Simulated assay, not measured.
Amino acid sequence: MARHDEVLIALRQIIRATDLYSRKLSKVAGLTAPQLLVLQAIKPHGELTMGDIANEVSVSQATVTTILDRLEKRGLIERKRGEQDKRRVYASLTGEGGAILERAPTPLQEEFMARFEQLQDWEQTLILSSLQRVAAMMNAGDIDASPVLDLGAIDRAQPATEERRGRHRTHSQTDQK
């Protein structure tokens, strides 16, 4: 087997592992990985502002707001205005949010980080530089991404861009020919 095929297989295995984890998380807890990370960020603090959550999870405040909207609709978190500063809004877990968090599987990136930290420094550097090179080879070096291992839009509410819609239509039309 050619080396490039082995590389593509390894990339596909990583994508597949992420997809399988996302499905397991959805089945077991009814959450996406970013939703789980937001709940986990809130738990040890009792309550956090949107900005604090964004910093903890490494996503934008707009993304956090969208995730919190979904979690609030499901009754997993509640928001309240600050007592001293009414401009600040705090999110906290509800009882149901805490219960779901207890039965949710460990985030995939936590397992990865634990194993990665056990590697020698040179091995970590080698993996990092190799993956950065692969990202560049796939023209993905400039794509903004958070350290959340999940598939699809991070907030699951981002509408497809016109470019993606056009590309999808083009592929669909091509498939029909």
Rank of each mutant, 00 (worst) to 15 (best):
A140W: 11
D144W: 10
V134T: 08
G152D: 14
E102T: 00
M137L: 13
G152P: 07
Q132H: 13
Q173Y: 14
E162H: 01
T125K: 11
T161N: 02
R87F: 07
L108W: 02
S92L: 02
T125H: 09
E117T: 09
E111N: 06
I100G: 03
L101W: 01
G98H: 00
S92M: 04
L119A: 04
V89M: 13
L108V: 05
R88H: 00
N139E: 11
A135H: 12
L128A: 13
L119N: 02
A145T: 14
R169I: 13
L108P: 04
L93K: 00
L101S: 00
R133W: 07
R156G: 10
Q176T: 04
Q84W: 03
G166P: 00
L101D: 00
A91L: 00
Q158F: 12
R165Y: 07
E117A: 15
F112L: 06
S92W: 05
G97Q: 02
Q120D: 12
S172Q: 11
T174M: 14
E162L: 01
S172Y: 09
L119T: 06
E117N: 13
D150E: 10
T170M: 09
L93E: 01
Q118I: 01
N139M: 12
A91G: 05
E117P: 06
S146G: 09
D150G: 15
D175I: 08
L108N: 03
S130W: 08
A136D: 08
I143M: 08
E110T: 01
G98E: 07
G98T: 01
L149G: 09
R115C: 05
G95K: 10
I100R: 12
T94K: 02
S130R: 01
G166M: 01
L93S: 01
L101F: 00
M138H: 15
R165P: 04
S129Y: 09
P147M: 04
S172D: 08
R115L: 15
A99N: 07
D121W: 08
D150F: 13
F112A: 08
H171W: 15
I100V: 06
P107C: 08
R115A: 14
D150N: 15
R164P: 00
H171D: 09
Q124M: 09
I127W: 02
A157T: 13
